[in-house]
Nucleic acid binder design. Structure first.
Lengths: 235, 235
DNA sequence: CGCGACGTTGATTGTTATCAAGTGGAGTGG
DNA sequence: CCACTCCACTTGATAACAATCAACGTCGCG
């Protein structure tokens, strides 16, 4: 079941929704048209995998809509999600290495993909894009390292609280009292936090009983006491 | 107790030991001289801190000799080491952000430092250095994400085995039967692995009793059965 | 209606953290 | 040269936390 692919007309970049947030923002009209001619839009259904850990990473690209996860596995199949990408974010590993992560759609998603070789050459020729990619990669590295503190040193409550705060601020409008739809299953939350599904579930019901959140049906989350949750997340 | 600092003569770059391995390798003689004029050599004693988490990160630079750790802490003081840097590696956070890690010398070390602003401007003007930094940052990100799997999903034995294999291959000559000096205290190993000092110690004595390693005195490590240790590390 | 995916809850186990001594070696000073 | 101290490390006993194993509930869908 291959993902649907179709050429994206060159002019599409001009009106691209994520252009301002993606690395393409660094390019002028001419370079943008050139890059656009190298790319293709691609639709990925929720659950489908775009890149496999260990395979030659033939693709890179930008997320247009939806969310995807980056994950790695131990030899015996335990999974850890090492990153989640949103519209405007870059995916894949430029510059000649195998993919070290599996990239899988968490929701239906569209991405604008390039063959890695073609993208690498383009990047060599257009320094701006390297600059943009560098800034983005430095931010990603900061995020990964912050998450290492969570994985290495935080308790289950601290981990879950941190995730809920982050999802709420990222997907809600930041207002306390909001209800958001959780984009992750309990299993995925566990894979992100280094916990089991049961521990995630128990921790969330404990938060609900304590009046910090409400969980009206599996995937809905209502924030009731963000301050206290933040206090827990801080460790 | 401020670290010792002295100007590095511009010509020092030409004969710099780490030049071939550092981002400077990307520069031609002229640009190298320019960058050299911005930098200063600096000595840091084991245990001294170069940058503090949360402070404005005024410095960036290259490691010339020694090893340093990058670490973060929870609000209540639990520490996680998120990276270890060796000669030729880059330290600091270019492009306008506070340092998110504390950088501390694990051994006596020398670094070649630049004021961040001066370095940023130089990097804007010299695309090559951005390219070199990008490749290095992508590698760092891969490493950080691999470590996230260890922190999130591996048992104490798997974590310790992974670290010992990595230290042995990095510091020894890769031959089984070698003895190496461990560059980390048990506490530091724990901070890197997300474990307590006691768990690290117990795990190592279990490995010794099983004949996988020998520990002749606190900091020496002799590899006796690298294969089995690798098997454990694989999960 | 029954099935399957997802989520919750309970009982129990197992691993690692915590608390508390104890050991051994390097360095100091009588 | 021998206590003495300090520090890193080890070892032991116990507790706490999260994983595991096992039902059970709920929702959506054929």
């Amino acid at each position: 079941m291959a993902a649907a692919r179709r050429p994206s007309p060159a002019h599409a970049c001009q009106s691209c929704d994520v252009r301002a947030n993606a690395i393409c923002a660094s390019l002028d009209g001419c370079a943008l048209a050139e890059l656009g001619s190298l790319g293709r839009r691609m639709t990925v259904r929720s659950g489908q995998t775009l890149l496999w850990e260990g395979d030659e990473a033939a693709l890179v690209g930008n997320v247009l809509t939806g969310m995807l996860k980056l994950s790695t596995m131990t030899g015996d199949g335990r999974e850890q999600i090492v990153g989640v990408v949103f519209p405007g974010d870059f995916i894949g590993r430029p510059f000649g290495k195998d993919s070290l992560q599996t990239v899988t759609a968490l929701t239906d998603a569209t991405v604008c993909v390039f063959r890695r070789n073609a993208f690498d050459s383009f990047a060599e020729a257009h320094g701006e894009i390297g600059q943009a990619l560098l800034r983005r990669t430095l931010d990603e590295l900061d995020r990964a390292r912050r998450w290492m503190l969570l994985l290495g040193r935080m308790s289950a409550s601290e981990r879950v609280a941190t995730l809920l705060i982050e999802l709420h601020s990222r997907l809600g409008h930041g207002r306390s009292g909001d209800t958001i739809m959780l984009p992750l299953s309990r299993q995925q939350m566990g894979d992100l936090l280094g916990l089991t599904i049961e521990t995630v579930s128990r921790t969330m019901t404990r938060f609900e009983r304590a009046g910090l959140i409400r969980l009206p049906g599996g995937r809905r989350l209502e924030m009731r006491n963000e301050e206290e949750l933040k206090r827990i997340a801080a460790g």
